[in-house]
């Protein structure tokens, strides 16, 4: 039973998927407007993974929004969350 419970937990975790939307100058680095990741549990973890995948992000100032709300501290993520990478706005 215990093994089964562990297996189910693992299975559930591995199904957790988040979408990352990319905007502005960051699209020049990622080459696309949206990315998918699995098993990322927090915005901090996402930040580190992005930096590892795209080292050029180091030089870019950007904010993250989780489900359209800008966050200013490490935030836990849930399955199907949408995270946006927002470089400085330049509308108008």
């Amino acid at each position: 039973m215990h093994i089964l419970a562990n297996y189910l937990t693992e299975f559930k975790n591995s199904n957790m998927e988040i979408s990352v939307l990319v905007f502005g100058q960051i699209t020049d680095i990622t080459g696309k407007g949206s990315l998918k990741f699995t098993d990322i549990k927090s915005t901090g973890e996402l930040y580190q993974l992005l930096l590892k995948t795209y080292p050029q992000l180091e030089s870019i100032k950007y904010l993250m929004a989780v489900n359209k709300k800008i966050i200013h501290e490490n935030t836990m993520l849930m399955d199907e969350d949408t995270i946006a990478l927002l470089p400085p706005f330049s509308g108008g």
Binding site: F23, G24, A84, L86, P87, P88, F89, S90
Partner: peptide
């Protein structure tokens, strides 16, 4: 200008581009 997530890409006369900074 400060709060709405819009980005402007400036297209230059030689067809290159750069991201606008407000």
């Amino acid at each position: 200008k400060n709060e709405v997530p819009v980005w402007g890409k400036e297209i230059l006369s030689n067809e290159t581009s750069q991201w606008k900074l407000n």
